[in-house]
Simulated scan of single mutants.
Amino acid sequence: MTVVVTAIIDNDRYYARTEEERAVLIRRMVDEEHPGWASLVYVWDRPAGEGSGRLAWPAWQLRVSAEPGLGVGALNWVGPVPSDELGPWDTLNPTPIVGVAVEFDGSVPSYFPPSAVLPIDDVRRAVAEHFNTGRRPECVQWQPGYRF
């Protein structure tokens, strides 16, 4: 099966099918500033968002918010997890980083809880894992996310 990574970065859609293209997307999402925008990621058997209706998008999404200048970021997962518990899920840092804020949604604005903020290397590693598995990354811990 062919796997396609679809990333929405700064409200523009990008696709990756090769390791090189995936590495470029990770750098764009994690290492570049995106004021007011979280990146959204879909790993599927086809490009997400093509076509119409609910079959155009998978039933899962990884939200990637990074503050590269501060060396931190946070993730939000909506979709199936091994325990079958309902989400959404935010990353969990057992040793919270105090004094930094990571934006969840710049249009509101809203922020991840301090307990969700991770070192940027952990964010990068989790995004790479998601690109390879299409599932919620297991290299980081998770906590129940905010329900709107």
Rank of each mutant, 00 (worst) to 15 (best):
E50P: 02
T18S: 15
D31E: 15
Y42E: 02
R28F: 07
S39F: 05
D10P: 05
D12C: 12
T6D: 02
D31F: 11
Y14A: 00
N11W: 12
G49R: 00
D45L: 03
W44L: 02
L55K: 11
L55M: 09
P35Q: 06
S52H: 10
R13N: 05
R22N: 11
G53C: 03
R54C: 11
R22T: 09
A56T: 01
I9L: 10
A38Q: 12
V24A: 12
A16G: 07
G49I: 02
L40K: 12
D10S: 12
G51Q: 06
T18W: 00
A23L: 05
V41M: 05
E32M: 09
A38C: 12
M29L: 05
R54F: 13
A48P: 02
V3W: 12
R27D: 14
V4H: 09
R17Y: 01
V30K: 00
P47G: 07
Y15L: 15
R27Y: 11
V5Y: 08
G51Y: 01
H34E: 06
Y15V: 14
W37H: 15
A56K: 05
I8W: 14
P35T: 00
V24D: 13
Y42Q: 05
R28Y: 10
A7T: 11
I26W: 04
D45M: 03
E50M: 06
R27M: 03
P47R: 11
E33M: 08
A23F: 03
D12L: 15
P35C: 00
R17W: 03
R46W: 04
V5C: 08
G36I: 03
S39A: 15
E19W: 04
Y15G: 09
T6Q: 05
G49N: 06
V3Q: 15
A48W: 08
A16K: 07
R27P: 01
A7Y: 09
I9H: 13
S39K: 02
Y14I: 00
A23G: 08
V4D: 03
T18H: 01
R13I: 13
W37V: 09
I8V: 14
T18D: 00
R27W: 11
I9G: 05
G51M: 00
R17Q: 13
V4S: 07
R17K: 13
T18A: 04
D45E: 13
A23R: 14
S52P: 04
D31A: 11
E32A: 06
E32G: 00
R27I: 00
Y14W: 14
D10Q: 14
E33Q: 11
P35E: 01
Y42C: 02
W44A: 08
P35R: 06
V3E: 14
R54G: 09
M1A: 14
S39V: 08
R28I: 01
E33T: 06
T2R: 15
H34D: 00
V3H: 13
A56Y: 00
A56S: 10
R54P: 08
D31W: 14
